[in-house]
Write a protein that binds this DNA or RNA. Structure first.
Lengths: 182, 182
DNA sequence: GCTTCGAAGTTTAGAGTTGAAGTCTTCAGG
DNA sequence: CCTGAAGACTTCAACTCTAAACTTCGAAGC
């Protein structure tokens, strides 16, 4: 447990001032956007982590449930596809599924038609926990954005998707790893 | 045999449609902002990871160097403070410093005045690598924002800091964990 | 001075991940 | 059939992080 007491994180502006002090050719406006994005994301993950912990699971497990639900109708996927979707190795997926089967969140069976394949499905309990996590997440997200008008939300979403498009075409390979399935 | 390889990540809009299909009371505008933020951050970390790898280090090591440089003049900190700043446990910090000392990026010495304390400092090589990483990072960040006008950058930064302020007051405890020092 | 307490780091055990090697199944030739 | 190659997952060893126990030093009290 990281002891967060003391040594307060510098404010965004303090930090940007420090960057400018040590690295002259830095555009403070760019840095402000990038640093705010990074910090915001960190805080969001902390919030999600607390919520999933309340349901007795981890963010990692939540992401598997998300992938299965979002996959749609049969709500089943192979470990390999899940691994690609979450950006981790098949080995990690094997272990993660082991744990989740033990906890009753998902099922694992062999495909009858092709006995090499394995199929992971979501259980009733898994779906219920996903739903509850979604409820908590949307409450948090609405609070997060409460200071922005409808018009502002629209503009913010539009700008972010523009940035996303730009970086996605610069990184065509999905570049998995560091997951954080959204 | 549908070549399922790739299992391409669904586009943002596809994913939001999936969310709406499975969870009716969801505000698509909110979800768009949140998901774009999350994806953007993931892509940024991938980009930084490639750059630091080019310099023969990891993002984790880069973050230690950042903390030391941003700390200012003597460019030294104790492992405990570093750990707080990066949001990890003192134990993890001990190991990380071990590796970085072995790689010649930082130094570790005992404080003369108080022999319980340890002081971590940055080496010439460490500073040089930090500088080179900063150069690469700023090039990437400028490319990322190239589609936004100065006015748009300003508005984006302002909105993000507003969100950040909101979440920071909801999570007064710095909430370390999941570091990603910005 | 001696003892006790608190602070700062390190060590240890356990969870989760990666990359590489291994297993099992399917499919295409020969 | 039998063999070899490819695919899908699992197993194994090494690594990094967390939580908790431990060590050491410094500061008070008595």
């Amino acid at each position: 447990m990281a002891d967060t007491s003391g040594a307060p994180e510098p404010s965004l502006d303090e930090q940007i001032a420090a960057y400018q002090r040590e690295f002259q050719d830095l555009d403070p406006q760019v840095e402000k956007v990038v640093s705010a994005l990074s910090r915001l994301n960190r805080r969001m993950n902390v919030a999600y982590g607390r919520q999933t912990a309340e349901l007795g699971m981890s963010n990692a497990e939540w992401e598997v449930l998300k992938a299965l639900v979002l996959a749609g109708d049969p709500y089943r996927m192979g470990p390999g596809d899940l691994a690609k979707r979450l950006g981790l190795t098949p080995a990690a997926m094997t272990h993660r599924i082991d744990r989740m089967v033990a906890e009753g969140l998902v099922t694992r069976e062999r495909d009858e038609n092709n006995r090499v394949r394995v199929i992971v499905g979501i259980t009733e309990e898994g779906r219920a926990k996903w739903l509850e996590a979604m409820r908590m997440a949307t409450v948090f997200e609405e609070e997060l954005l409460q200071d922005l008008s409808g018009e502002e939300r629209h503009r913010l979403g539009e700008m972010l998707t523009r940035l996303l498009r730009r970086v996605e075409e610069a990184q065509p390979d999905a570049g998995g790893r560091l997951s954080d399935l959204d």
